[in-house]
């Protein structure tokens, strides 16, 4: 077990880690705007963070703690989006059955496709490796 850092330092590191996440997000948004990329800025921010981690070759402890905390409470941040559906009740009512059927059928198909494709290729490559 690593020695425990003093609380004040840990709070400072958390703040810095959060700022780093915000900075990646903002830079990603700026790049998308500047070059007119049809990609959500936050995904470019994610790729920037990934590049930084690849260069560092490790995850700073404070960053890991902040990331775990934020991701474990992602659902809180979706609540306003869920409530926002209230503004589109008429549209949902109009397209209710197409939506329900699409959600079920498409999710089954995607689950089967992803799982089967993985297993099929995994068996093929494992076998080839075993034959070597």
């Amino acid at each position: 077990m690593a020695r425990k850092r003093p609380l004040a330092l840990r709070i400072l590191l958390w703040a810095l880690a959060f700022l780093a996440l915000v900075a990646c997000n903002e830079v990603g948004g700026y790049i998308c705007d500047r070059f007119g990329l049809p990609v959500p800025g936050t995904v470019i921010g994610l790729l920037i963070m990934l590049a930084v981690l690849a260069v560092l070759r490790r995850v700073p402890e404070g960053l890991n703690e902040v990331a775990v905390y934020l991701l474990s409470h992602l659902n809180l941040f979706y609540v306003p989006a869920g409530v926002g559906v209230l503004g589109y009740v008429a549209l949902v009512a109009r397209d209710f059955w197409p939506i329900v059927i699409t959600l079920f059928v498409s999710t089954f198909l995607a689950t089967i496709a992803g799982g089967l494709a993985f297993q099929f290729v995994a068996r093929a490559t494992d076998k080839r490796e075993a034959d070597k």
């Binding site: 996440l21 936050t42 920037i48 963070m49 990934l50 995850v59 960053l63 902040v66 941040f77 609540v79």
Partner: peptide, 24 residues
């Protein structure tokens, strides 16, 4: 309602970037 909700929606951006950490 969204005047308050917008704060939470804003945090979604940095939280998405945080997906890089467990992925890495």
């Amino acid at each position: 309602y969204q005047e308050g909700g917008i704060v939470l929606l804003w945090i979604l951006g940095p939280a998405t970037v945080a997906l890089a950490v467990p992925f890495f």
